[in-house]
Amino acid sequence: MIKIYKTEESIVNEIEKVEDGCWINMITPTMEECINISEQFDIDIADVRAALDDEESSRVDLEDGYTLILVDIPSIEIRHKQEAYTTIPLGIILADGVIITVCGEETPVLQAFEKRRVRDFSTKKKMRFVYQILYRATSVYQNYLRVIDKRRREIEERISDDTEDKDLIDLHELESNLVYFATSLRANGVVLDRLTRYERLKQFPEDREILEDVIVENKQAIEMTAIYRDIINGTRELLSTIIDNRLNNVMKYLTSITLVMAIPTVISGIYGMNVSGKWMPLSQTPYGFYIVCGIMVLICVIVLLILRKRKMV
């Protein structure tokens, strides 16, 4: 799918044909659409389709007649029947008079521009537009990071009440999301650093300020990712320790019950031996059976008191 936009007096409008100073937004484009754009602007077809490969790494390529900027942006996917976060490539191509974006799916990073949520946005100021896209991407990263931390806090609040093995799995999923974010943010940081050094890319002082803001926000997102990973790791260790401690308490309780139940078993086993009844204590005594039962109950109570004193039950 290809949509073409152009700003007039700070208002973005969708247009039918390619014009000078427009933005061509390609979302999951077909091969035919990629070939048309490639031939129209003399761009290598591999560069047009680079963002459609999930394995592509972030980079900046200065080619004859155009520039390719490839970065990773956050995305939502379904893993194990629940919502999770990952990263996907976003290609930004600066061609003759136009800016082209290529992505494998709809993304809130670009939707903010389509729905007029970004101020001072112009498709004619290409480098400023690029930096605004990158700034928006880092903002989405930070929003998703806050959501991840909120989910972590929800799991942490359940630790003292109803801790389950599922919570450990959920923490592992959250940590996996942060690994994807950390890797992509570091790669994007390299791209941002290169953009500050390329003199071929025409930039105004205002554009430089936006780029500096993007670099700062990207570093902040990296720090947030590292902090949240450490916190999740600590929460997971705490959760695992609590589950192990509860298991130990259950085993200790069952062991104590087994010990108490063994007392009447041993006594009744002795009295059940095939020997002459006259040699068994209390066998000829009136109410001997009840006396033996009372002794067994007394011994069990004494053992229970000892175990409780030692906090075994």
Results as ranks from 00 to 15, higher is better:
11 I>K: 13
11 I>Y: 12
19 E>Q: 07
19 E>R: 06
22 C>P: 04
26 M>A: 15
32 E>L: 14
32 E>I: 13
35 I>C: 00
43 I>E: 06
45 I>H: 13
45 I>G: 13
48 V>Q: 08
52 L>H: 10
53 D>S: 13
53 D>M: 07
67 T>D: 11
69 I>R: 05
72 D>W: 06
74 P>Q: 06
75 S>D: 08
89 P>K: 11
93 I>L: 14
95 A>R: 07
101 T>N: 10
103 C>Y: 01
104 G>F: 00
107 T>A: 02
112 A>D: 08
112 A>V: 09
122 S>G: 02
123 T>S: 14
127 M>P: 05
130 V>G: 12
134 L>I: 01
136 R>Y: 04
140 V>G: 05
140 V>M: 09
143 N>I: 04
144 Y>G: 03
146 R>S: 08
147 V>F: 02
158 R>M: 07
158 R>V: 04
159 I>P: 07
162 D>N: 15
167 D>A: 04
171 L>T: 04
175 E>K: 09
177 N>C: 12
180 Y>I: 01
180 Y>W: 04
182 A>P: 05
186 R>F: 01
191 V>M: 00
195 L>P: 05
197 R>E: 12
202 K>Y: 05
221 A>H: 01
225 T>F: 03
228 Y>P: 01
233 N>T: 12
234 G>C: 02
238 L>T: 14
239 L>Y: 13
243 I>V: 15
245 N>C: 10
254 L>T: 11
256 S>N: 09
258 T>H: 10
259 L>Y: 06
259 L>A: 15
263 I>A: 06
263 I>T: 01
265 T>D: 09
267 I>Y: 12
269 G>W: 04
280 M>L: 15
281 P>I: 09
285 T>L: 14
287 Y>E: 12
290 Y>N: 15
304 L>M: 15
305 L>M: 14
307 L>T: 06
311 K>V: 08
